[in-house]
Design a protein around this nucleic acid. Structure first.
Lengths: 346, 346
DNA sequence: CTGTTAGCGCTTTCAG
DNA sequence: CTGAAAGCGCTAACAG
């Protein structure tokens, strides 16, 4: 169709700053300034330059910029299972805080093994990042080392009980689990199970809280802690509830590692004709969007994920420049949302 | 604590290739080769070099590498609402195909407005990407232009009815909706509603299919097409079902834009004491993990999201090098999964 | 198999 | 407010 367009693209060597400069009759550095620091260029020149930029379709080369300025403006987010429902709000918080800044965010989604996490971290570190946000367990000392040596602010998010390499923002999962467990006790449940998936760091903290409260009440039974080493899912929730009720027909409630498990447990209860909350109480974790709309609505622990994302970026922005590490830990708190799935007379 | 460590980090100018080279007693380029093309360096030198690299904690600078080689190895994925449940499988497919290659993936998560999508696309283009994967409607001609001019392979994913800027892989959403609608008719439902959220491109295609089938059957009623211009969610599904049954008590089934809406519709039906599937049939879209575990299980259209991700990367890898654009369109097909939520005698 | 030379596209000095 | 020179860290292309 359009010969000219096609030809231009084929023969088209990349348009550079000096191409633009030449055409605009100025030097390269002036174009550079007009683009990044318009104030420092006289209005008329600026206009000329910007229109030439537009006309030629000039696209700055971030690699060259990063190399010359030693500043990539990139904030890397490493989140295993980034695509879990739980991360929607987290990502929104991040984006909202980044938008008005001149940083840019990029996500990496490593598998659950620490090898892959290391790879992804190295990729980011290879890009002179302005900051790093890490979600995850950090079981591996190699990861810990890498974060500790990172030449940029690092924020570990979600759980705050670990001593962070640099900064951390999140909640205390142990405390949250204690609160939830106490709630189940208050509602009169006595044979309370814990249903979970992979025992990562957060899960372990939650189990600790669960155990502490039940032990204090003389009601802890390790046999009621069920989990399978896979990603959590609604299907897993079904499966675990099934196993629980088959092996322990007297179990009367479950604290679930997250809302997916809780939803699965709810569905499976319905399938079994088990009345929730009368015969069986269910408490989740996270307050995913659907929890409040389920029938009955699912009691859960709200984790301020939006704010965690927002604050994480905020910390990075504030830490930029100051060479020293601050060891800041920010506890954003949690909130037990009592809803239908545990609503019976204590 | 450790004075040495602290001091080293403070005074530490970035370790470069030539630092390593010097310490290993070779030239920079040899180190470079030892790292990227170990075969081209004698085994003994290679070992020395690699151990020096390890010892000094050398981290290559991707910006410099990209600048010098004009090859960033970066594949950018632009996905509005990356963090929808629906993308989990898609991302897994991408990652699985990328892992054995020497490419690396990075995700950007623009807001729904095309302005933000443009920004994110430009960011990637500024990095000389090896490829671009774009999920989304491309309502905007500016986006279309950008993709068309992109100096790298571009794959548009999910829907294949648009003429792609370069390549596309996905399914035909119109056809899929037709199949689903026909299924509802087969099951004897007659007052069938369509429940949706934002009317993006995919949604419009689905509506077309829905409408075509019902019109052919003489059963199309535009009043039964309900939607609200927000992100879809379970809560929205509840809301829409509520509105539907209030305004049209005789409505007896709903084709939902996705499984979140369907799940909300299911919960709301339960709350209203409406028996699914006897009194009301529900069909979703996507086959999210929970759909098969709900009670009753939700009939839905399976979209091969894992494979879409996998193939998208595959197309980029294959297209790399060949300068010309191929206009490849790959239809991966869909599958109607008939389950409990529509399972009644026709 | 190893090294030399040059330069990627941009920005940082430092001058005017 | 504008420009000239130098170089960021790495790799292509050619030699040896």
């Amino acid at each position: 169709m359009n010969q000219i367009t096609r030809k231009r693209r084929q023969s088209h060597d990349k348009i550079t700053l000096s191409d633009v400069a030449q055409k605009a009759g100025v030097s390269a550095i002036t174009v550079s300034r007009a683009l990044r620091d318009p104030e420092k260029v006289s209005p008329q020149l600026r206009d000329t330059i910007l229109s030439v930029v537009e006309e030629m379709g000039y696209v700055p080369d971030l690699a060259a910029r990063a190399l010359a300025s030693k500043n990539s403006g990139l904030v890397g987010v490493v989140a295993p299972v980034l695509t879990s429902h739980a991360f929607l709000a987290f990502v929104r918080g991040i984006e909202d805080r980044v938008r008005p800044s001149d940083l840019r965010i990029q996500y990496a989604n490593p598998g659950p093994d620490s090898e892959d996490q290391l790879r992804q971290l190295r990729f980011f570190l290879s890009q002179n990042p302005a900051g790093l946000i890490h979600v995850g367990q950090i079981a591996d000392t190699a990861i810990d080392d890498l974060l500790r040596r990172a030449p940029c602010p690092v924020v570990e998010v979600m759980d705050i009980s670990r001593e962070p390499a640099d900064m951390a923002v999140g909640i205390d999962n142990r405390l949250a689990a204690e609160t939830a467990t106490r709630h189940l006790l208050d509602k009169g449940y006595r044979r309370i199970a814990m249903l979970g998936g992979v025992w990562d760091f957060r899960a372990r903290r939650r189990l600790e809280g669960f155990k502490a409260v039940l032990e204090a009440a003389g009601l802890y039974d390790p046999a009621l802690v069920l989990s399978v080493d896979t990603t959590t899912s609604v299907g897993l929730g079904c499966h675990l509830l099934d196993r629980l009720k088959n092996d322990f027909p007297d179990a009367d409630a479950a604290l679930c590692h997250n809302d997916d498990i809780a939803l699965g447990a709810l569905f499976e209860s319905q399938r079994r004709g088990l009345a929730v909350p009368q015969d069986f109480g269910i408490c989740g974790f996270n307050d995913l969007e659907y929890a409040g709309f389920a029938f009955p609505a699912i009691t859960t622990v709200r984790v301020p994920r939006y704010e965690i994302g927002y604050r994480a970026v905020d910390l990075i922005i504030r830490a930029t420049g100051s060479a020293s590490r601050s060891s800041k830990i920010i506890d954003l708190g949690y909130q037990l949302l009592e809803r239908g799935s545990t609503d019976r007379k204590g």
